[in-house]
């Protein structure tokens, strides 16, 4: 018998478990990825390309598609624990509730980062964006947006799986919370990709940072209340 791991070590074990399942099946990741790429291409034809420049369209497309693709991953986060009541195994483990939440959130963060790692280059390619120093800043914005999305989405995923209309409820609960994320990410990346000074994007970045701090804390504290004792 080993000693019970600390919160961070325990959350890493939970994340590794989820990532191993995802890596061996790859179903959710591949479908979310294909969904994101399809979305990026469909959006291009939803506008008159002669009236709206592709570069003006790109940030909005990227972040809207990102939130919807993220929802696909989040759905599976606790959905996978339903089969054979696998969640009981997690709850019975000698780890804190917070560690379960952080582990799940960490696995989801890897999931959505993987989607972004393919979607961002795809948007740059399909929308003919200038491939410059803005890309590095875009990665930073992506990280901030992903943390906020995952913090809220993981908590709501835990709640939604135990309801009668799980697949419908998760987007309904999450999307209002994604509004500041989409606005912050889209507005700041639009400015940075247009080569504007970072000072112009700064107010939006501050909202993203504040959102991450507030909701990572609040959701970690709230998570134990979503579990059945």
């Amino acid at each position: 018998m080993g000693e019970a791991p600390g919160t961070l070590a325990a959350s890493w074990i939970v994340a590794r478990k989820d990532l191993a399942i995802e890596f061996r099946t790859r179903t959710a990741f591949l479908s979310a990825l294909v969904f994101a790429l399809l979305g990026v291409t469909i959006f291009y034809f939803a506008w008159d390309a002669t009236a709206v420049a592709a570069a003006d369209l790109a940030p909005g497309v990227l972040w809207v598609i990102f939130t919807f693709a993220g929802l696909l991953g989040l759905q599976r986060s606790f959905g996978s624990e339903l089969a054979d009541r696998a969640i009981d195994g997690l709850l019975g483990a000698p780890i804190s509730r917070e560690a379960i939440y952080l582990g799940k959130a960490l696995a989801n963060l890897v999931f959505v980062s993987g989607i972004l790692a393919v979607t961002i280059p795809a948007v740059v390619l399909f929308y003919n964006l200038p491939f410059g120093p803005g890309i590095g800043a875009l990665a930073g914005i992506a990280a901030l947006a992903a943390v906020g999305l995952v913090a809220v989405g993981t908590l709501f995923s835990a709640m939604a799986v135990n309801t009668r209309m799980a697949e419908l409820l998760l987007p309904m609960l999450s999307l209002p919370f994604f509004v500041p994320i989409v606005m912050g990410a889209a507005q700041s990346s639009a400015r940075l990709m247009a080569g504007r000074p970072i000072a112009e994007a700064w107010p939006w970045l501050r909202i993203l940072v504040a959102f991450d701090i507030v909701f990572v804390t609040a959701c970690t504290l709230a998570f134990p209340y979503t579990l059945d004792e």
């Binding site: 919370f177 509004v179 912050g184 709230a222």
Partner: peptide
């Protein structure tokens, strides 16, 4: 509770 935390963010953005 989360909704109450969200309202200032929405208003701000």
């Amino acid at each position: 509770i989360l909704a109450a935390l969200l309202v200032p963010f929405i208003h701000l953005s």
